[in-house]
Computed example of a mutant assay.
Amino acid sequence: MNGLFDLGGADGLGPVNPPAEEPVFRADWEKAILTMFPALFRAGWFGLDSFRHGIEVMDPVVYLKSPYYEHWLHTFEVHGERLGELDMDELDRRTTYYLDNPEAPLPEHEPNQELVDFATAAAVGGVPPRRPTDNPVRFAVGDRVTLSTNAPLGHTRLARYVRGKTGTVIAHRGSFVYPDAAGNLQGEDPQHVYTVQFDATELWGEHAEPNTTTTFDVWDPYIELAKQLEGATA
């Protein structure tokens, strides 16, 4: 999916100057949003890739002007509405109520130990996306490969700045959930992942910093052997 969120290699956005002592949370409501993630993940509202895609469908202006955890809140709402778990009109009514009554107590809920245990385990060890596949390993270290130029309408992890570029496979990482399937609610479809190294001039042209390279992890469907592409266009 092409969108404003895909900013790799973009110019004109100003310098990145993080403060020396950046707070973990800028407001108390952000803490609540963070704790909602494992609960909704555990409830099956989204996987990591569909979670990301729910952010990608934000209005671009809102995306740029809103803080990080507001992006999370947006994707919660997208998937809650999709699943019929959220009534957006009711959500608006409740939001208005608490804006008008900021001191009103929040609803109380019984603690869920299973959820607490899951969130604790996920915080420590993550939720590994590695999956087995019967697909063959098509590429070897040293192979020259060219990345696809596809610009899909849905979710993808194929960044625009590497599309159509040629590099060298430097590692095979195993097989993992394929974001272009999982992010679009089409199952996990595990695919092999390779690390491809690009010369800076391949990505940025003659003005690239000399003697530098960039690596990018790619799923198998993103790439073909460079010589195959050259032969196909000869």
Results as ranks from 00 to 15, higher is better:
residue 129 P to A: 04
residue 129 P to L: 05
residue 130 R to P: 05
residue 130 R to F: 06
residue 131 R to M: 11
residue 132 P to Y: 09
residue 132 P to I: 08
residue 133 T to P: 15
residue 133 T to Y: 03
residue 133 T to L: 13
residue 134 D to K: 04
residue 134 D to E: 08
residue 134 D to R: 06
residue 134 D to Y: 02
residue 134 D to L: 07
residue 135 N to I: 05
residue 135 N to A: 07
residue 136 P to I: 11
residue 136 P to G: 09
residue 137 V to R: 11
residue 137 V to A: 06
residue 137 V to W: 10
residue 137 V to E: 01
residue 137 V to G: 02
residue 138 R to L: 12
residue 138 R to A: 07
residue 139 F to H: 07
residue 139 F to Y: 10
residue 140 A to S: 13
residue 141 V to H: 01
residue 141 V to Y: 00
residue 141 V to D: 02
residue 142 G to W: 09
residue 142 G to C: 08
residue 143 D to W: 08
residue 143 D to N: 05
residue 143 D to S: 02
residue 143 D to Q: 01
residue 143 D to H: 09
residue 144 R to K: 06
residue 144 R to A: 03
residue 145 V to Y: 02
residue 146 T to W: 10
residue 146 T to L: 13
residue 146 T to H: 14
residue 146 T to V: 12
residue 147 L to A: 15
residue 147 L to Q: 12
residue 147 L to W: 04
residue 148 S to C: 14
residue 149 T to Q: 06
residue 150 N to V: 12
residue 150 N to M: 02
residue 150 N to T: 06
residue 150 N to Q: 08
residue 150 N to Y: 08
residue 152 P to E: 04
residue 152 P to H: 03
residue 152 P to D: 01
residue 153 L to W: 05
residue 153 L to M: 08
residue 154 G to E: 13
residue 154 G to S: 15
residue 154 G to W: 08
residue 154 G to I: 15
residue 155 H to Y: 07
residue 155 H to E: 06
residue 156 T to A: 00
residue 156 T to Y: 03
residue 156 T to F: 02
residue 157 R to W: 06
residue 158 L to G: 06
residue 159 A to H: 10
residue 159 A to E: 11
residue 159 A to I: 09
residue 159 A to C: 14
residue 160 R to I: 09
residue 161 Y to M: 15
residue 161 Y to G: 08
residue 163 R to D: 04
residue 164 G to D: 14
residue 165 K to Y: 08
residue 165 K to H: 14
residue 165 K to D: 06
residue 166 T to H: 03
residue 168 T to Q: 08
residue 168 T to F: 06
residue 169 V to F: 02
residue 169 V to A: 04
residue 170 I to F: 04
residue 170 I to V: 08
residue 170 I to N: 00
residue 170 I to L: 00
residue 171 A to M: 14
residue 172 H to M: 12
residue 172 H to I: 13
residue 172 H to A: 14
residue 174 G to P: 01
residue 174 G to W: 01
residue 175 S to K: 12
residue 175 S to W: 12
residue 176 F to L: 01
residue 176 F to A: 01
residue 176 F to I: 00
residue 176 F to R: 00
residue 176 F to H: 00
residue 177 V to A: 10
residue 177 V to I: 12
residue 178 Y to H: 06
residue 178 Y to P: 11
residue 178 Y to I: 10
residue 178 Y to W: 11
residue 179 P to W: 12
residue 179 P to K: 11
residue 180 D to G: 05
residue 181 A to V: 06
residue 182 A to G: 15
residue 182 A to D: 09
residue 182 A to S: 15
residue 182 A to T: 05
residue 184 N to I: 01
residue 185 L to V: 01
residue 185 L to N: 00
residue 185 L to Y: 04
residue 185 L to Q: 00
residue 186 Q to F: 03
